[in-house]
Design a protein around this nucleic acid. Structure first.
Lengths: 342, 342
DNA sequence: TACGTTTGTGTAATCGATTGCATGATTTGA
DNA sequence: TCAAATCATGCAATCGATTACACAAACGTA
């Protein structure tokens, strides 16, 4: 009834050996055309489905790859995963997803789980730069399991990564604000132990420097990626003398909080104050006062990550391949920073 | 060097049989305490990691479950998957994700892929009600692979499902508009071959009926879940005589399009026109003119789905279990429909 | 002392597909 | 006509963990 047919069933049916069936199903050139056809037809007739677990055990390839992200229900990570899945699907790989919730212990646990499950590769956006997970990363490499970083990476020799140019992103966002005539530009920065936020910050500083605007540390406020932190940070900034006249936020959510607070203070945007966010979250476009922001091309990032993985898998040469791909950030200029009526 | 240790390596090291090692690692009560301790310690020392593929092949349980959704980079599906993952993770299941892009052939292919991969269960939000995928669903059931529907289901005996009460959602949304004094309420409905949209529509009709408001089919416009369709539909509606004074949209995105178009026509919201959307997309809350909408508790839905799956897995009794869980929709009243200054 | 239990381990089969090596059949060439 | 080459297929081991069954040792009881 619901019993699954194996190659042995087919073999018995045709009075041949299971080995021949296996080879026929894999189009092995050693097998005669007629036998191949016969086996194929019988397999179809008997509704044969390969048990990939068995093949996986034998070959050591599970056909699964693991993707580790802080969380999946955000536009950014959801889109990256979508890109990865769409690229790997035609290549017969399944995508297993894990969440870390920014917890490095969880990250280590996830990596171990994926290794136990014999995944053929791991794609990860790490939680932070702590040394704690350095060890496990090396364990992965020792096992020769392809590892690829996307967005949040570590600098480890021999490991490929797909990121965006966060420095440039910070630079063009800040430069844009300067071009709008802003003189005192504040920055809501993220966790500086993460390279991405560090680079956005550096880009911001460099843009100021290039325009001969003095950098002032009091205009830099650390805030997490949420509305509340954006509000709190803006409150602090408005109490300074002089207060800033623009904000480059490393997060769209913090930017949104900033805008809400600025409005609450009766400040006109963009006339009196400009804001640029980061991430191109869907809502930034939909608001009546649409928010200028940096697009990270997450779908593209996911596809690239998958492509690099496939390339490494197909690399039969006897050398390690390391590819560092840096995507170009795209500034979307919207109302929150458009003084020139674009 | 990077060779993985197996139970045979441990067995050889301790001069015992692999069977004993296996039993010890699984805390089999037949094995003496001292041996268990010895094996455990040696396993740790030799950095042993179970090869789950081998265990999976033997036991027929892969430890993976498949989740099929139209796409993952939306707030709704992303959140459902998050809920599923969080609930299954502690139970040592991995989550494999597949996307259908609303294509039923892709759906069938995904199910086959998951079956081939020997997943221990499938959770799916189907693309539509066509008969085409009926057959494959039954194939899954015949194979005794637990199958659970979430959000978009089919009515099939013996299959559990977790949904929200779309009828009630349509009802309370419409009733709310009526309570705001709206008399001519239009409905932007979705694909009526999907039960969810059909029920929202029915709830809308029932609310009208209960308030003795005549149902008028010309106020019902079919539109997909995107801004453009919302704009187009609203345009059509505004050309009617008399035009409606409210819209209940089965999608937040269409509602957003509607609002944009209403504004373009200089119509005051909520004074002259009220709008209620569906889905509680993040942007609905963030807009200056925040959008009233129905929350579907996607995280909760995901967790419930996983719980029902676990319950079925742990059900050792000799009977089939069918559980139909219907979550309560929550109306979030926001500015787009608040005439009473809430 | 003799026999039935209990306890702890080992042997070997099993899950299903793959593959190196062996073998028998057929063809080629001299 | 026979050796060599080619071709198609079978045998059996393998991947690593699990488990039914067998069995020896230790223990208890009459």
């Amino acid at each position: 009834m619901s019993e699954k047919t194996t190659i042995y069933d087919i073999a018995k049916e045709l009075n041949i050996s299971a080995a021949t069936v296996s080879r026929a199903l894999n189009n092995n050139p050693k097998i005669s055309e007629s036998t191949i056809k016969l086996v194929m037809d019988t397999a179809a007739k008997m509704n044969y489905k390969q048990n990939r677990l068995a093949a996986a055990l034998r070959s050591g390839k599970s056909g699964n790859i693991g993707v580790i992200v802080p969380r999946i229900n955000t536009n950014f990570f959801g889109s990256v995963i979508r890109g990865i899945e769409e690229e790997l699907h035609p290549n017969k790989y399944n995508v297993i997803i894990c969440q870390t919730h920014e917890d490095e212990n969880r990250e280590i646990e996830n990596i171990n789980t994926l290794l136990d499950a014999q995944v053929d590769g791991i794609m990860i956006s790490i939680t932070n730069e702590s040394k704690k997970n350095e060890k496990i990363i090396h364990r992965v490499l020792e096992k020769n399991v392809p590892l690829i970083f996307f967005d949040r990476k570590k600098n480890i020799d021999g490991v490929s990564s797909i990121t965006i140019d966060d420095f440039k992103a910070g630079y063009i966002a800040t430069k844009h604000l300067i071009d709008q005539g802003c003189k005192k530009i504040a920055h809501l920065c993220g966790d500086q132990s993460l390279e991405i936020y560090e680079n956005r910050f550096k880009g911001y500083q460099k843009a100021l420097l290039d325009s001969a605007i003095p950098f002032d540390n009091k205009y830099v406020i650390h805030s997490k990626s949420n509305i509340e932190d954006g509000i709190a940070a803006t409150n602090k900034l408005l109490q300074l003398t002089p207060p800033p006249d623009a904000i480059f936020s490393a997060s769209d959510f913090a930017a949104l909080g900033a805008i809400q607070e600025l409005k609450a203070h009766g400040i006109q945007i963009p006339e009196d104050f400009c804001v640029v966010g980061f991430g191109n979250e869907p809502f930034t476009k939909f608001m009546e006062l649409s928010i200028s922001t940096i697009d990270q091309s997450p779908l593209e990032m996911g596809k690239m990550t998958a492509k690099v993985f496939l390339e490494q898998m197909n690399n039969t040469e006897d050398f390690k391949m390391e590819k560092k791909i840096v995507l170009n950030p795209i500034l979307h200029i919207r109302k929150s920073s458009s003084r020139n009526d674009l």
